[in-house]
């Protein structure tokens, strides 16, 4: 039994990809650390101001551990990260230590929440519209969908955000214009508050995913097995759903994963516009105050979510390919 699992190409591929994912993450952590180490700007000098003497700067750096060699600092950091400890923020006071985890944690939760709700709304709509556009390809409906999605991809996000805010919060006061959420709010209220950011984000990613779904399905329609299905008298909607779609999952899942990763790491503009306390804002703030451990922590989480989501997409693509899932 165990041997079977090892020799099954599906499982073997998953294990290989997982291993490669870890290797990639490790390499990325090196790059993050090295990039930040060579960046100009020094937390100690910035905090202490111009009047600081070299001795005070040196003392301060020693208290932060910045006097140690780079390699040692990296090992300490990555060693902690493996156990989930991302270290102490530079903003910790002498008696009040603030861990990076305690700064990023709540922000990450908010970001995942916003991303999750957006994904729940956007993915089904995108798939549905993509499939409809493929079934009714070259009809007026398809053309309109194409034009609208092209436009919504082309507009920058902050523009869409402000337009929606103007229309749906100011002119027509349906939603909150700002998405300031606090832990004390009930879930219904939170949902109401984040409605506009969800809408803004959905616009862009629905367009992207829908166009890919349509293209992936239509790309398969010239295959002989599609003609065979038609010659068996299979109705057009069934040709798409049963004969084209199952073969189109790999590219569709890849673009969904890409968009989910974007929802986690790329939404800082939307967070800023709606004043939403997400991880993107946390990172920007940390960069501004040169709080290096927080910046590193954010970057590592971003990298991990990209790698994880793409890994998931690969696994789904392999699992939906009968050649790999059911070897000869």
């Amino acid at each position: 039994m165990r041997k079977e699992i090892i020799s099954n190409p599906l499982f073997r591929t998953i294990f290989t990809r997982l291993g490669l994912g870890f290797v990639t993450l490790f390499a990325v952590s090196l790059i993050i650390f090295a990039a930040i180490a060579v960046l100009p700007g020094d937390f100690a000098k910035a905090t202490l101001g111009r009047a600081a003497t070299p001795e005070t700067v040196a003392n301060f750096q020693k208290s932060l551990g910045l006097d140690r060699p780079v390699a040692e600092r990296y090992l300490k950091w990555i060693g902690g990260a493996v156990t989930g400890d991302l270290g102490l923020s530079f903003s910790s006071g002498s008696g009040t230590p603030r861990t990076v985890g305690s700064i990023i944690g709540p922000r990450l939760k908010n970001t995942l929440f916003l991303a999750g709700i957006t994904a729940l709304v956007a993915i089904p709509i995108a798939l549905l519209l993509g499939i409809i556009a493929a079934i009714r390809r070259n009809s007026w409906l398809d053309r309109i969908l194409n034009a609208v999605t092209l436009a919504s991809i082309s507009f920058p996000e902050f523009f869409v955000a402000y337009v929606l805010m103007l229309l749906l919060a100011v002119k027509l006061p349906l939603f909150y214009s700002l998405a300031r959420v606090t832990p004390s709010m009930g879930s219904i209220e939170v949902l109401e508050r984040i409605a506009l950011p969800v809408l803004t984000l959905s616009f862009g990613i629905i367009a992207h995913m829908m166009r890919m779904t349509r293209a992936a399905i239509i790309g398969l329609l010239s295959h002989p097995y599609i003609e065979m299905a038609k010659l068996k008298g299979v109705p057009p909607w069934r040709v798409i759903l049963r004969h084209a779609l199952p073969n189109a999952w790999a590219p569709i899942v890849a673009v969904i994963a890409f968009n989910l990763a974007y929802l986690i790491v790329g939404v800082v503009v939307v967070e800023v516009v709606f004043v939403y306390p997400g991880i993107g804002q946390a990172m920007v703030d940390a960069v501004r105050s040169r709080d290096i451990p927080v910046v590193q922590g954010c970057a590592l989480i971003f990298a991990a979510s990209y790698i994880l989501l793409n890994l998931l997409a690969d696994v789904i693509a392999i699992a939906t390919n009968p050649r790999l899932a059911h070897p000869r």
Partner: peptide, 24 residues
């Protein structure tokens, strides 16, 4: 026409390898 296809008139294609759907 679609209702006749498959039931009363059937088709056997040149390349069965390409004409069977790989997913089913």
């Amino acid at each position: 026409r679609r209702q006749l296809r498959g039931t009363r008139i059937a088709y056997v294609a040149q390349s069965a390898a390409a004409s069977f759907n790989p997913a089913h």
